[in-house]
């Protein structure tokens, strides 16, 4: 309260901006995380800028070449450059993840908002259904959904998205319930604002922030889920590069040529760690 009471003077918005930049520079890990994420987005958008090798054409005489200046991640059994396959794989994996997060975030937010705002029987009914979907671990649910839809990267995205709707809905509902009981929402009703107005002007904007932080976290988790399903073989058919599949392909030779699975896997892990770090900073800012 003290800080709030004394911190108002001056052009506060400008100061807040410069402070944010200053804070960012003071957190090298966070800066590094942003750089990692930006590079990987670059991989997905313009893969040819980052590598001269083809992800598909290999030189069978040069199979399992260890990492070198020429082949950063080495080559696989068919002599294909694994770095190139990782770069091109970013597109497959990230597109699927983005789609999954959009599905989960969009539907989850709507379901959670309806439950929290409507309250009563509607709330109870929706939340019991959400309970059921929470009771089936999302990887298992995603596997079942993929098995019904058929194997493909798009279906993986759909499955991962659907299986995460429930957790988004739960977070959104909890947040909506907190906001609905705030004085400023009661105040708005007291001022004569209608239900729809209260929802659009107060409840939604104030509830979304924590769900957006969750969405940032879900990007990391989504990459993991997509890659896991790819690893298990439910994704794109083999010549296509996909991160989980890359690890799975290298796995049979791990005893002799460990880099073939470990380097693409590490690239994946670094990306997930970076997104987690970013989502943590988003959550802190919300507080």
């Amino acid at each position: 309260m003290t800080a709030l009471a004394t911190g108002w003077a001056g052009p506060a918005r400008i100061r807040a901006h410069s402070r944010r930049l200053g804070d960012l520079i003071r957190q090298p890990v966070l800066v590094l995380s942003w750089i990692v994420v930006l590079i990987v987005i670059g991989w997905a958008l313009f893969p040819s800028v980052f590598t001269d090798h083809s992800p598909f054409a290999g030189d069978t005489t040069a199979s399992f070449v260890p990492p070198s200046a020429e082949h950063w991640f080495g080559t696989d059994r068919l002599g294909r450059d694994l770095f190139a396959r990782s770069v091109y794989g970013a597109r497959t994996t990230l597109t699927a993840t983005l789609l999954a997060v959009l599905i989960a975030f969009g539907l989850g937010a709507v379901v959670g908002l309806s439950a929290g705002f409507a309250g009563g029987l509607v709330d109870t009914a929706i939340m019991r259904v959400v309970d059921v979907f929470l009771a089936i671990p999302s990887l298992l649910l995603a596997m079942v959904i993929v098995s019904v839809l058929g194997y493909s990267t798009n279906n993986i995205a759909l499955a991962v998205g659907i299986s995460s709707i429930a957790s988004f809905a739960r977070v959104m509902r909890a947040q909506v319930l907190t906001v609905v009981n705030q004085d400023y929402v009661r105040a708005a009703y007291g001022l004569g604002v209608g239900r729809l107005g209260v929802m659009v002007r107060h409840v939604v904007p104030n509830s979304l922030s924590s769900v957006i932080a969750l969405a940032a976290l879900e990007v990391g988790t989504g990459v993991l889920a997509v890659a896991s399903l790819g690893f298990l073989g439910y994704g794109a058919p083999p010549p296509q590069p996909e991160w989980g599949l890359l690890v799975a392909e290298g796995r049979d030779y791990v005893a002799v040529h460990p880099w073939a699975s470990i380097l693409p896997g590490l690239a994946l892990a670094v990306v997930v760690i970076a997104t987690h770090r970013i989502s943590t900073s988003l959550r802190k800012e919300n507080r």
Partner: peptide, 22 residues
């Protein structure tokens, strides 16, 4: 902890295999 949830299980499994077994 956030490192622990970020590393995919299939990768950590392979890493553990590689180091402690092979």
């Amino acid at each position: 902890p956030s490192g622990a949830v970020s590393v995919p299980v299939f990768l950590s499994g392979i890493l553990v295999l590689q180091i402690f077994s092979f």
